[in-house]
Structure formats: structure tokens, C-alpha cells
């Protein structure tokens, strides 16, 4: 009898602080698996965000640097330019990458930095208590939009992947979703491809991972997957954008 699925060695054998059914756990594992399959653990430097994943460095078994809120890509730029032999990636949520860090994101993409960005989109601010994020869907109820997001008051969901894909310096942009085993496997191959792009000096690669936040969506984890398939992926269409 052969072991066909288990924890990979880049993922530490510790309990995470994430809520039950949180998509961060899946995304952490996919990154660790991609890194181990490409055999680049000794070269990788991860930039962890501010947000729910702020202590992701406790869960990964490779080097990480913690960034101030939203500044992940500024730090990644510096590290990659000083140490071009290292594989540098940022792991950022929607509050970090699409709200406070929009300037850093857009400009790092526009400069075409040779970096890998893993953008976790769960349409809500998890760490601070479920407030509205730039990516919150129209009509979605959050702590700061209790009657649902209203276009007149709060505007439309910000589609960072589509915005970034317009920039000539960007090599690859893909949106995937951890809403089913098939979706998770697609997400893994997208993340692996994004690391491979950096190894081949192709340039800026961004993978947007739609991820569940059952706690602040006020759904069960199982219903969260259905909501992602039926509602969230309508607003954020999946697939290769660039």
C-alpha cells in the first residue's frame, strides 16, 4: 500500500489558527506542494502579508519576511533586485493587495518585476472582523455594509487581476478557485506555473485564488463552496486572463 496523499515537507506539521473551512489552509498547502515539486525550497523567500495570513511563516518550512500592511511587493522588489538568484513570492489577501497596497501592486506590475504574486480573494476583511473589502460583491452583507454592498454608495467590486493584465510589463495573470477538488488542483497548477515563470525569468505573474471565508460569509463551509461556484465566480470569472 502506497501513500498517495499526505502533508508535504514545506508545510510544517502544526495546527493553523484559521477558522474551520478557511481557504487559507488550502492555499498554504498548494504553495508548499508547488515549491517542493519544483525543488526550490532552499531558494524561496516568501513575503507574508497583514491579514488573516499574517503568521503564515509559522506554517511554512522556508524563509519568509513579514511586510508592513500592503507593502509586500515593494519588499519583494527590493529582495529580488538584491538577490536575483532567489525565488521571491508574495502572499497577499484582498485587503493587503487590493486596498492599502494597490499602489505597490500596480507599480510593481507595471515595472514588470520578475516576481510571483499569490492573491487570496475572499471578498471580505477576515482579520479585522468581516468588514467590506474592495472585492466584496454587489449586495453582499458585511459588518460595514449591513444592507448589502450598494453601487451608489460603495462602488463596484475591484477586479485587480483584470486591471493588472492590461499592463505591458505583466507576463501572466490567472484566476482560480478553491471551490472543489478540481478547482484546487487547477489552482495548484496555476501556482506552480507562476513559480516556473519566475525561474525562467519571464516576469510578473499573478495568481488570484478565490478562497472561502465561511465565518464572515455567515455560511457553513460546505455552503461556502456552493456560493463560490454559483455567485462569486460569476463576478470573478475563472481562467487565464493573460
Amino acid at each position: 500500500m502506497k501513500k498517495v496523499f499526505s502533508r508535504t515537507s514545506s508545510l510544517r506539521d502544526v495546527d493553523t489558527h484559521y477558522c474551520s473551512g478557511c481557504g487559507h489552509g488550502i492555499a498554504h498547502r498548494l504553495i508548499a506542494e508547488a515549491i517542493d515539486e519544483l525543488d526550490i525550497r532552499e531558494q524561496v523567500i516568501g513575503i507574508t502579508p497583514v491579514g488573516c495570513a499574517v503568521i503564515a511563516y509559522n506554517y511554512w518550512n522556508f524563509d519568509c519576511v513579514e511586510s508592513p500592511h500592503g507593502r509586500g511587493l515593494a519588499i519583494a522588489t527590493a529582495i529580488k533586485r538584491v538577490r536575483p538568484q532567489n525565488i521571491v513570492f508574495t502572499y497577499q489577501g484582498d485587503g493587503d493587495l487590493a486596498a492599502i497596497g494597490t499602489a505597490e501592486t500596480i507599480h510593481a506590475a507595471n515595472r514588470g518585476e520578475n516576481l510571483t504574486v499569490i492573491f487570496i480573494n475572499n471578498a471580505v476583511y477576515g482579520m479585522t472582523g468581516g468588514q467590506m473589502a474592495p472585492t466584496t460583491l454587489i449586495g453582499q452583507k458585511t459588518a460595514t455594509s449591513p444592507r448589502g454592498r450598494d453601487i451608489g454608495n460603495e462602488g463596484y467590486p475591484l477586479k485587480i487581476s483584470e486591471i493588472v493584465a492590461q499592463l505591458p510589463g505583466v507576463y501572466s495573470v490567472e484566476r482560480v478557485s478553491c471551490d472543489s477538488p478540481k478547482g484546487v488542483l487547477k489552482a495548484k497548477s496555476a501556482i506552480k506555473a507562476a513559480f516556473k515563470n519566475q525561474m525562467d525569468n519571464k516576469g510578473f505573474s499573478l495568481v488570484e485564488v478565490l478562497s472561502a471565508c465561511p465565518t464572515y460569509w455567515s455560511l457553513t463551509p460546505a455552503d461556502s463552496l456552493d456560493w463560490m461556484q454559483n455567485t462569486m465566480s460569476k463576478e470573478f470569472p475563472l481562467g487565464k486572463i493573460k
Binding site: 496523499f5 502533508r7 489552509g25
Partner: peptide, 10 residues
């Protein structure tokens, strides 16, 4: 593959 806590080995 879907387990967020890597609690399952196959």
C-alpha cells in the same frame, strides 16, 4: 485535496 488542515492521508 479539499482539507484545509492537512488532516487526511490517503
Amino acid at each position: 485535496v479539499i482539507c484545509p488542515d492537512t488532516a487526511i492521508e490517503v
